[in-house]
Computed example of a mutant assay.
Amino acid sequence: MFEQQLINALTLGSVYALFALGFTLVFGVLGVINLSHGAIFMLGSYIALLLVSQFQLSLWLAMAVAMLACGALGVIVDFLVLRPLRRRNAPHLSPMIATIGVAIMITNIAQGLFGAENKRFPFGTIPEDSISIGNLHLTAVQLAIVLISFILMIVLLLVMRRTQLGRALRAIAESPKAAYLLGINVEGLFLLTSFAAAALGAAAGVLVGLSFNAISPFMGQPMLHKGIAVIILGGMGDIRGAMIGGLFLGVAEVMSVAYLSSDFRDAVAFGLLFLILLVRPSGMFGKILERKA
């Protein structure tokens, strides 16, 4: 049924969009592609799983703690890895290579601590109830994923568009040097951006763990590939583009599985992305951001 597939696509696309938001936020403000984002996404799901299964915390409290913990890790990565490279005016490839190393380290630590096999949230972590509207069936998991994703995305969009903090971040995205001369605490906002991006990645990790009921140390790499595709499709550094691009990728994947075959899932989705980028190489929302001064 087409309408049911749209619900499934909205659920999957919401998670992709949430993951890509943190990714594009770092690129838009810091001007780097943080390739450790997928590993932090994976770690967030493990932290929530540990808190739920071992400490009997509620899922939502566990998710909040996971976001805070991964946000702190994002700050540590920025302080220890990205900040020294910024001060040395390192080439653009240096942060990418450095964060690849961070991702490999986090993945190997997770594999050593939790094992390579898939883990699952305990039965009953979230109610198994569903809402039926005609022939449509919306489970509690799907409803929670869509609501949490859209709430976090809207909050981020409002912060960026309507607050003094958002204006300061946009100023830094345009020119860090000019922002510094205007009295903006550039380094402090770099750290805050890293915190927010990692926290969003952790939230996406928890939601993916709930959606697929499978958590593994290697779940971050496929999501990283899709996150890169989403932010390129939407326009590098553009929050609206990350949201719409994530939803588009979710629709493309679900519809290809429903009406073609699961074997063609990624081929169809990335093929459509390729065709769109042939028409609009800079993405759906304008040109790629360029730093000035």
Rank of each mutant, 00 (worst) to 15 (best):
D238T: 12
F195Q: 00
R280C: 08
A202I: 08
E174A: 07
D266P: 03
M236E: 05
G205M: 04
A214V: 06
I276D: 08
L233C: 07
G209S: 01
G235A: 09
G250W: 10
V268N: 06
P281N: 04
A179C: 10
A197K: 01
L191W: 09
A197P: 04
L192K: 06
F212D: 00
D238G: 13
F218C: 02
L273Q: 07
A269V: 03
G271K: 12
I172K: 06
L277Y: 12
E253T: 03
L277A: 09
M153F: 06
M284L: 15
G246C: 10
A173R: 03
L189G: 03
I244Y: 04
R265T: 14
V159H: 10
P176R: 02
R265K: 15
Y180T: 00
L207N: 08
V230A: 13
A168M: 10
M223T: 03
L275R: 07
R161S: 14
I151C: 10
L158K: 14
A258S: 14
L277C: 06
E174Y: 14
N185T: 02
G183R: 05
A168I: 12
N213T: 09
V279W: 13
L275N: 08
F195I: 10
I215T: 10
L152G: 01
D238S: 12
L210C: 10
I231R: 05
G234L: 03
L189I: 08
G246M: 09
S175H: 05
I184E: 03
S256N: 04
L275H: 10
L249Y: 04
F218A: 08
S194N: 10
F248T: 12
M243P: 00
L200F: 14
L192C: 11
I151D: 08
M160P: 04
S194V: 03
M223F: 13
L181M: 14
P222S: 13
I239L: 11
V268T: 02
M255L: 15
S256P: 10
D263E: 14
G220S: 03
D238F: 02
F274Q: 11
R265A: 07
E187C: 02
N213A: 13
G237L: 07
L210Y: 06
G205R: 02
L181D: 06
Q164V: 12
A202S: 04
F274M: 13
V159K: 01
L247H: 02
L169M: 15
L182I: 00
D266S: 15
L273P: 01
F195Y: 13
